[in-house]
Design a protein around this nucleic acid. Structure first.
Length: 326
DNA sequence: AAGTAAATCAACCGCTCCTAT
DNA sequence: AATAGGAGCGGTTGATTTACT
């Protein structure tokens, strides 16, 4: 009955990830691709990752995954988030699908720490708002449900539109997971894809070093060594942890350098064309939709309705009366 | 310079849904 | 069809950093 037992929780490490753990995880994903998280802790060899699969997934999707932009939200992004939050409520994953470079966790944090206050400020003096002042904490009106539904439909249409586009051949006809990680397969399991993970790690490690001045000092010898390697590969990184690290990074970076320019290998624009929903639909559309629904009908429905509109339209679509939500 | 409060954000927890058996 | 595990999601926590007194 069912599957084999879940990973036992004995000896599972918690708390902040170390650079070495990041390297192990990225190396693993370079080899096997994302997904099948349950096997990550056991397949990373001795000593391997003493992390639960959940933690690995989170670390990858939120920090190590290629194409992630962190911090410095632009005004445009802020507006997008505000509008989408008004439309969708606290459905961070759905909101994040409109901002492919951002993670749901990042957006959620940014909303809670910045935007909430910002909007609160803007709306101080409005007596009819409760403390949160936003749709998520308000009773959802019929109109709001309709708007959410509309947005979901828009998302689905957009995704279908992408999926049905003949210009975009399926990149992984045979290697997609059946679970929700399909969006992680938006870019091929090619070396170039994961090369940009090295950039992510570089960035993370840079911050890590800033937070750990002591270790930076005590390991200054190896630091110099490894940072040289990294700088030579185009990452402004000062790395500091332990003697093993440079080797691990050498491996990563040699991998990196063998695949041409990192910045070209995974362009952000490219990623932007593949929202999670899009990829899910790409996946499904190939196997199911084409078989069950005449293409022409779907296409007509999509294109007649101007489904190809971009993200900007979403803002404008944000419903004239949407302001009333605040 | 030291102490304290506030802000930030990475990571965990618990729940739900989906899927494999 | 029933069951159990995996994956994803949103809420929350707690450690760290920054600002203020």
């Amino acid at each position: 009955m069912g599957r084999p037992p879940c990973c036992d929780k004995v000896g599972v490490k918690k708390g902040p990830w170390t650079p070495e753990e990041d390297i192990i995880l990225v190396s693993y994903i370079q080899e096997h691709g994302p997904g099948n998280w349950r096997s990550v802790p056991t397949n990373t060899g001795f000593p391997g990752l003493l992390r639960c699969s959940k933690s690995c997934r989170l670390r990858w999707t939120n920090y190590l995954r290629p194409g992630i932009k962190r911090g410095n939200f632009t005004e445009h992004e802020e507006k997008m988030i505000i509008h989408l939050q008004a439309l969708l409520g606290n459905r961070w994953a759905a909101i994040a699908s409109y901002l492919p470079q951002r993670t749901d966790n990042d957006i959620k944090n940014y909303w809670n720490t910045h935007l909430k206050k910002k909007l609160k400020k803007l709306h101080t003096g409005l007596d009819d708002l409760n403390q949160d002042g936003f749709s998520a904490s308000q009773p959802i009106t019929k109109g709001q449900w309709e708007r959410r539904l509309q947005t979901d439909i828009q998302m689905a249409k957009r995704a279908l539109c992408e999926a049905l586009s003949l210009d975009k051949p399926s990149q992984f006809p045979d290697s997609k997971p059946s679970n929700g990680d399909a969006h992680l397969y938006a870019t091929p399991y090619q070396a170039s894809t994961y090369a940009s993970s090295a950039e992510n790690i570089a960035r993370l490690l840079e911050n890590w070093q800033k937070r750990s001045p002591k270790s930076a000092q005590t390991n200054s010898g190896t630091t110099q060594n490894s940072s040289n390697n990294l700088v030579a590969n185009g990452s402004s990184l000062n790395y500091t942890e332990g003697a093993r690290t440079p080797d691990a990074f050498d491996s990563l970076l040699s991998f990196n350098s063998s695949t041409s320019d990192v910045s070209q290998s995974v362009s952000v624009e490219e990623n932007a064309n593949f929202t999670p929903e899009t990829n899910l639909f790409q996946d499904e559309s190939k196997s199911n939709l084409e078989a069950e629904v005449p293409l022409t009908l779907l296409e007509k429905w999509l294109f007649d309705d101007g489904a190809a509109q971009g993200h900007e339209d979403l803002i404008h679509m944000s419903l004239e009366d949407g302001a009333g939500l605040f």
